[in-house]
Design a protein around this nucleic acid. Sequence first.
DNA 1: CAATTGGATAGACTAAGCCTATGCATCTTC
DNA 2: GAAGATGCATAGGCTTAGTCTATCCAATTG
Lengths: 297, 297
Amino acid sequence: MHLPTLRQLEFLCAVADHGSFSKAAEACFVTQPTLSAAIKEIEGHLGVQLIEREARGASLTQAGEAAVERARTILSDTADLVSAARQAGAPLTGPFRLGAIPTIAPFLLPRTLKALRKAHPNLKLYLREDQTERLLDGLKNRTLDAALIALPWEANGIETMDLGDDEFLLVAPTGHDLISQHAIRSTDLVDEDVLLLEDGHCLRDHALSVCRLPSKRGGADVTATSLPTLVHMVAGGLGVSLLPKLAIDAGVASGADVELKPFETPMIGRRIGIAWRTGSPRASEAQMIGEIVRRAL
Amino acid sequence: MHLPTLRQLEFLCAVADHGSFSKAAEACFVTQPTLSAAIKEIEGHLGVQLIEREARGASLTQAGEAAVERARTILSDTADLVSAARQAGAPLTGPFRLGAIPTIAPFLLPRTLKALRKAHPNLKLYLREDQTERLLDGLKNRTLDAALIALPWEANGIETMDLGDDEFLLVAPTGHDLISQHAIRSTDLVDEDVLLLEDGHCLRDHALSVCRLPSKRGGADVTATSLPTLVHMVAGGLGVSLLPKLAIDAGVASGADVELKPFETPMIGRRIGIAWRTGSPRASEAQMIGEIVRRAL
DNA sequence: CAATTGGATAGACTAAGCCTATGCATCTTC
DNA sequence: GAAGATGCATAGGCTTAGTCTATCCAATTG
């Protein structure tokens, strides 16, 4: 079977992107006739018209749409092959773009980075703090190599590695009833004012779900933008809340006028994990970084 | 980024396959120096040694293994692109290799094939009857384009389309107690001698599961190799069994000295579906064929 | 030690890919 | 509606990358 050239596939995608032979040619750093000939050749080999030549540019036929979609994954897979191989030659070196959600990053990374630097001095780590959704977008569009998020999180084309549990503790104003209570369960919070992070933080959703709270409750919802803020609000008597042990260990509650208390078994909490794009050339590095983070947990 | 040529990737895979430059070259219809140069060039671009030159041939380095794996999917995706595009030019024509499990094929296909031929006279249908596992293997290694199987069946890299339900009816010797009983439930069979197909047929597993029977029961297991045989065994008084309505409608029980009876609601049965390899160039055709089969059901 | 196997190297040839220049439609503008 | 602008196709020449044949070298085998 006669295969098209990757170059030709690039040309095809470029035409799809720019809607014009000339623009596409420019983007590919070739002249328009070159590109025209290449497209014509693909069409010849495939026996199908892929591109509709119109007066005002070019558009894809149905077959073209399908072909472009396949071509894009082929090209990106090939790019992955290249960087994976390059990486294999010099593992854990060069730039690595790691994302982390805001309820993990400030508490976990300080400890981790030191260990990471020690283990892999040639690794240049670029950090990005953002909410889960956007981190996963980053993985998919290749602006991130890996991301620390809370599991489980199913997403197509994303693989994850489990790094351990992160228990939730009750945080309440000093002297609050719940603290003196013998044993508290997550469901005891139904009648409390539970303070939460603002919408979009996965910790908010976790807290809601472990307490079996409806996502929309009556009354004015009081939300915080970060965990330190949340602690202050609890200290101020606005209500109680949950804090991940990770944040507590990092000292987020120290000095504030609050008390902490673990829940009765079964433990409630979240799982921390590292995620990467399926087939990412740096998947193995993501796992090695994950291993180091796990030890730091 | 400098991409390798698909040709070069083919060469690389060939070396991996044949464990020797010369053999690989022969397989690719080029001379050995050509292939040597090509491999050397890839290695140069990637900056990694992919192949270990040994006295007695060639073997892959670790990086090479990874690269070959990626290269294989790239190449097969490209081949898919080509055939998908070709197909788009002449949809539903040419050879199409359809598989079906033995408890579907003889009963569903006779009706279907006529409709199929009428709708797509240029389609040359090649049929293969086999058990689910092997059909799915066939899809994966590209010796089949689609397969009619019982759902649900999750397998990586396989997509399916639901074609409708196929109810199971009780089949018992004429005058059997269960037939005169007012309403029978699948669990009523626990104390009966339930005859089954031999191991490997998914219908056997379905029957076991809907009746909540353990897969290994005491006593000599009596198994049949096909549904007609099964009917004869039931007629012979060896026990009762389940028959899919599909087979009954096709006359598998007609003439035999048996009686049939539907189960009480909820209906028990299986779902028929058509499966194809994810990304198969003929996925859309598989769905169109599925549509015709569904109407025949 | 000669023969065999298997990969590397050298140099020549060809065709594929790219370029410039130009042609031919269609759409825009005054 | 004529002139210009836009956009793809065609023609012909150039360069280079991929291929070949011929030969060499190293390791294994008998």
